[in-house]
Amino acid sequence: MRKFIIATTALALSAGLALAQETVRMGTEGAYPPYNFINDNGEVDGFERELGDELCKRAGLTCEWVTNDWDSIIPNLVSGNYDTIIAGMSITPERDEVIDFTQEYLPPEPSAYVALSPDVDLKGGVIAAQTGTIQAAYIAETGATLVEFATPDETIAAVKNGEADAVLADKSYLDPIVAESGGMLVFAGDPVPLGGGVGMGVRESDTELKEKFNQAISSMKADGTLNALIRKWFGEDAATF
């Protein structure tokens, strides 16, 4: 009997170990449609949800989705609360010093200003952006006054209630918001090319996981499924590979 117990425990333990190495926790923000958002059933949804599930399938990994505030999304990756960041994060040299990125799964895309009227002062006015984004860093350089918010939704609300003159964000995030604002919000100025494409963030020590996802992304690029997915979520005119 005792032998049997030991054997089953050993079996359970080793099964646990095998599983432990294959479950990957995917960290996302869940507040940035169409990239990632929490749908009305309370589940993570969006372009990155579909992409992530497909990548995990191709890499043979079991994936579990977790949401985390944008503010602390890098620190919580580094301290091991989840294993990847898949949250519309542009690859920048500053971030690359702290974490590693897979190859890009979205080509670089422009950012745009949105305001209540098309002729606001973008160089000297008050511009809203989400904390810790490439847009926030860019505004700080232009000489405009930067106001930062924790969520992308609050940056839009700030423009609507007059707290900020304009908001700078990824154009694909702003497109549906402007289209559905009933003429209240308009694009101002020219789109600004920022960032070097969007990739998945992983811990610098996690080279094996990074390689698995790199291969999965390559295979999705090769058979055209990635482009189809981009067109599905970002529209027919979206930049593809």
Partner: peptide, 17 residues
């Protein structure tokens, strides 16, 4: 390791699976 806090998979609390 640099910024990373890396423990073995069995030491994760709770286990990642």
């Amino acid at each position: 390791q640099g910024n990373d806090f890396v423990v073995c998979a069995q030491a994760k609390m709770p286990l990642s699976n």
